[in-house]
Design a protein around this nucleic acid. Structure first.
Lengths: 341, 341
DNA sequence: TCCGATCATTGAACCGGTTCGACAGTTGCG
DNA sequence: CGCAACTGTCGAACCGGTTCAATGATCGGA
């Protein structure tokens, strides 16, 4: 494999000249530049990543820490990951995907060893063990998800509070007065998945203000448990006319439940979900939903991260906490409550 | 950040002694070893990955080239990816996930620059543009999926031919004499996805031998097209009593179709799919299926790859083409054909 | 004609590890 | 008692880039 020394020899110049000709960081005569580029081309020269990293203290690699918990819905994660890898590549970075169970150890490993220029963290917990490590690391980091303490970090997330309110408002405006909200499993809450209670608490609060009855329950993450749960809820609250779903597995399971019970949506039951358009397509869901925009969030996180990586000025800018405002995509699954079921 | 020089100074030894004490590649007195380890601990020393890569010509990173095509079913891919990352980590390697559209260019980039010690390729096409590059690369590679020309490569795949035969045999034995096989979309075939016709051709051949009528059609990859297609097929072949599915999207869409038509499985229609257990759980599918074992395939590919990476002897061993034999997991969705529909 | 500025190029140092050959100091054996 | 073999440690070179300070060449202006 050709080194820059080979290129230099082939072009009849010194190593440093070859380096400058290739990088353009100093003026080089047209003649020499041509010779160097030709030599590089002829030898199929590609700089050695390790050597370059050592010399420049830049690896052009970003770390992506993602975890696949048993009780979370894996296909939903994929969207975030692709948002990150695609944007990273657009900006000239490769992505090191780390799915290790012990995220804190993994984070320490990749930052201390300088394998990466920056890190994106996903599956953020309220009190996330990785955050102290990230704050102490020499590389900048960005979070997709809101932790309890955002200090010293760039954070990107859906505005789950507003999402909860939008759902309740929408059905209230149509005339609904009794709703069911099905959230993620309680495990997720125990693990510190704040997005669960952020949406839930805001929805409950808004329902209280509007005088709407809201039955807020934690869900399941797997079939057949989640299907049973849905059936149980519809039995338990026969007067409820609207269903809010902040739980991908429940959303995916709902069609078979309504089929089986002979329920029509939205005539007998109005439904609003919270997931991504891509997810809806994959699972053939035709409910109105709050777009959770995973690709956009992943992309935003990477852009901010790369800004900080590349600009010394940006490193000292104040940290940002940016919420995407929930957009309700209408698919016609809500209507005024015509009949009690 | 501490370097090995800092550790050496702290321990009062030379850099080389510190290196040997940490690696154990030469005998070091107990006393000195203790001092070095203590110094490393005290300074929180972690070797710089770039420097080590430069010196040892090893990065402890594997490349994973995966593509997410519009017309393939993304959640199925995820299983393969996790199989790779998990096994890689077990063996001490991190994973560089590359999803770039131009796979050939990406492969050249990561191999030429020596970012990775080896590569796993997924979404293999019959005449894959990445293979010549991989063969010429200094690093070893492993394929998940069977290309037209396996020479010079380690290949791992499900035995799709046998899978096709197992499906037909199983239903023939139960007494079925007219079947439908729904494969992936024709786009996938045009792109060179050999697994489509490998299963299809073998199933057709076996059906011919057994005197079974087999209607083999290409499918769709998205709702609602795939649902319409399923309905159309059931209308077009009313005498067919068994359905074979080599198409994740079609499998995922089938339950709603049978519900809507009031078809009972297996009383009115026997069904066999080809997907993973994990996939079945995610989509709540309760059909008997041929396990495609994506995690096992990813894991096997990585193990073989790492063997070649780490052992000079293994580099020269003959290349392997290994097929996982299809295991039919019974979920009770097949039965003798009781009634014509 | 000489000088200073400008421009292109170079040699050397550096990044942070690993590894080879050399070298003391100790031990064992004849 | 002398020499060989062995142990443990060290200095130096190397991996393949980048970058700084210095050098030589060219040019315009006085």
């Amino acid at each position: 494999m050709a080194t820059i020394g080979d290129v230099a020899r082939e072009a009849g110049v010194s190593r440093s000249t070859a380096s400058y000709a290739l990088s353009g960081k100093r003026p080089i005569s047209e003649e020499v530049r041509r010779r160097v580029l030709a030599a590089a081309e002829a030898l199929a020269y590609t700089p050695n990543a390790g050597a370059r990293a050592l010399a420049t203290a830049q690896t052009k690699v970003l770390g992506l820490l993602a975890q696949f918990h048993e009780d979370e819905f894996a296909p939903a994660m994929l969207q975030y990951i692709l948002g990150v890898t695609d944007t990273a590549r657009d900006l000239g970075y490769d992505t090191l995907l780390v799915t290790e169970a012990d995220g804190a150890r993994a984070l320490r490993r990749i930052t201390d060893s300088r394998m990466v220029d920056g890190v994106v963290l996903m599956n953020i917990a309220q009190d996330d063990a990785r955050l102290p490590i990230l704050r102490a690391a020499p590389q900048p980091g960005a979070l997709v998800g809101l932790p309890g303490d955002c200090s010293g970090l760039d954070v990107f997330d859906l505005d789950f509070e507003e999402a909860g309110r939008v759902m309740v408002d929408h059905l209230h405006r149509l005339g609904h007065r009794e709703l069911i909200l099905i959230s993620h499993p309680e495990h997720v809450v125990e693990r510190g998945g704040a997005y669960v209670w952020r949406l839930r608490d805001a929805a409950l609060e808004r329902a209280r203000q509007l005088g709407v009855t809201l039955h807020a329950v934690y869900g399941e993450s797997r079939q057949p448990a989640v299907g049973r749960l849905l059936n149980g809820l519809l039995d338990a609250y026969p007067a409820a006319t609207g269903l809010l779903i902040n739980n991908e597995a429940a959303a995916a399971a709902l069609p078979s439940v309504t089929y089986a019970r002979g329920l029509r949506v939205p005539e007998d039951l109005s439904v609003i979900g919270r997931y991504s358009a891509e997810f809806a397509a994959t699972f053939s869901l035709s409910y109105s939903f709050i777009e959770s925009a995973p690709d956009r969030l992943g992309s935003m996180a990477v852009r901010q991260l790369v800004r900080r990586v590349e600009s010394p000025a940006a490193r000292n800018e104040p940290f940002v906490v940016r919420f995407i405002s929930p957009e309700l995509v209408s698919r016609g699954s809500t209507a005024p409550p015509r009949n009690a079921r």
